[in-house]
């Protein structure tokens, strides 16, 4: 009996490791896709995020041309990494509007001055209302909206160089 008992702690450890490994292998926080893909953009009207810039409202989106909405914030580090790629998308002809989440005008101005300003319109979303309405779970996120105001594509997290072809494909498809 005491021989068997000597190995009991090892068995407990094995059970612990097995249970935990199982849990690790099955990540709990899977990405949550917005349920709005394929649906019209919810109605909204944001105040301009910067004095003198055009504000953003849902009526601006059903303009006959596709537009991209970038949900960002000046306090978000991945947004900095994403900035040059947004400039590249703009160069390739993508019209990008921005939603600044829980941000201040002076911070946004400093951010755009430093990392480039690819945006057409910038709306301010001080309480994350629009962000939540869009079904976005964090910053940055980007949506492609077609000319009739229907959300066609959602990109979660920062756009990376490898994502550009896929985004351009979606953009062409939304035309």
């Amino acid at each position: 009996m005491s021989r068997l008992l000597r190995f009991l702690p090892l068995l407990v450890l094995a059970a612990f490791v097995a249970a935990v490994a199982w849990r690790l292998g099955k990540p709990a926080e899977e990405e949550i896709r917005s349920q709005l893909v394929g649906q019209p953009v919810p109605a909204f009207a944001l105040a301009p995020a910067l004095p003198g810039r055009a504000a953003l409202a849902s009526s601006d989106l059903a303009s006959g041309q596709p537009r991209m909405i970038n949900v960002f914030a000046s306090w978000c580090v991945p947004c900095i990494a994403e900035a040059p790629l947004l400039m590249e998308l703009k160069r390739q002809g993508v019209t990008i509007d921005a939603v600044a989440v829980r941000d201040r005008p002076e911070d946004i101005a400093a951010f755009l001055a430093r990392h480039g300003d690819p945006f057409d319109r910038i709306g301010s979303d001080p309480e994350s209302r629009l962000q939540l309405a869009l079904g976005s779970s964090g910053v940055p996120e980007s949506f492609i909206v077609d000319g009739r105001g229907i959300i066609r594509y959602q990109h979660m997290g920062p756009i990376e160089p490898d994502d550009l072809p896929a985004i351009m494909r979606e953009w062409e498809a939304a035309r």
């Binding site: 000597r6 190995f7 702690p9 090892l10 450890l13 094995a14 490791v17």
Partner: peptide
């Protein structure tokens, strides 16, 4: 832990 417990056993 596994190594130490095996050693112990």
């Amino acid at each position: 832990i596994g190594g130490a417990l095996t050693l112990f056993a």
